[in-house]
Design a protein around this nucleic acid. Structure first.
Length: 219
DNA sequence: ATATCGATTATCT
DNA sequence: GATAATCGATATG
């Protein structure tokens, strides 16, 4: 089993200042934090192992690149709020707004390591967990983790992620993420080479490539 | 293990 | 009318 797979204790929410910074810094610092979905009979929780930074300006891949619209308004609002969008006619994806109010920016949640509420997550995903090898199918990928946590735009867009009494929030328990790697972002066509994806190297819950590609040794 | 492709719809041109 | 910050299934090596 994975070292960080432990039931979080004494989770305390991250404050708004944490999010009111450059998305690159927020993304890096979110690794190892815990996403919490309170529910009857026990919260769903998962440790963040993969994220991507989307810069409000000067980033063609960001939804905020072309300016504020009804859809992306949360990205231009105050930091620490959930921006949820619907993609490919099938999936929701979760972001948190960054930067001070009036400045766009966000972090996309790409993968979690499930900590508690495994059965609820499996039900949300509509799959059965036969062994530990099936666990990554719960929350490995931005669409999957939203399905596992029952995150939808109607329910959660604009939700305050700093509020532990709210329906969705992010906490820390003292765990320190290590072996952090950076790579280009996944699934985009614009600004596709910028290294803005942050992940825990080798963690089995990371989506796609879980390590940095090897390179030839110079002669 | 990697590659390709279809599903399905909100949003913007 | 085209596109998309994806996923799961199928095909092929």
């Amino acid at each position: 089993m994975v070292a960080s797979l432990a039931v979080p204790s004494a989770l305390r929410p991250l404050d708004r200042q944490f999010y009111g910074r450059d998305p690159k810094r927020v993304a890096r610092d979110l690794l190892g934090k815990v996403l919490v979905r309170p529910a009857d009979g026990g919260s769903l929780t998962g440790r963040i192992v993969e994220v991507e930074a989307y810069l409000g300006t000067n980033d063609a891949a960001a939804h905020s690149a072309a300016g504020k619209t009804l859809r992306n308004a949360v990205l231009f609002g105050p930091p620490g709020y959930a921006y949820i969008y619907f993609i490919y006619g099938n999936h929701y994806c979760l972001n948190v707004s960054c930067e001070p109010e009036g400045v766009a920016g966000g972090v996309l949640f790409r993968a979690l390591e499930p900590l508690s509420g495994i059965q609820e997550m499996a039900r949300g995903r509509g799959i059965k967990i036969e062994s530990d090898r099936d666990l990554p199918k719960l929350t490995s990928g931005p669409g999957r983790l939203c399905e596992a946590f029952c995150i939808t735009r109607d329910r959660d867009n604009g939700c305050d992620l700093t509020d532990p009494k709210g329906g969705l929030w992010i906490g820390e328990d003292g765990f320190r993420a290590s072996k952090i790697a950076v790579s280009p972002r996944i699934g985009i066509t614009k600004a596709a080479t910028r290294p803005l994806r942050y992940f825990v190297s080798g963690n089995p819950f990371v989506s796609g490539r879980k390590t940095l590609p090897a390179f030839d040794t110079p002669v």
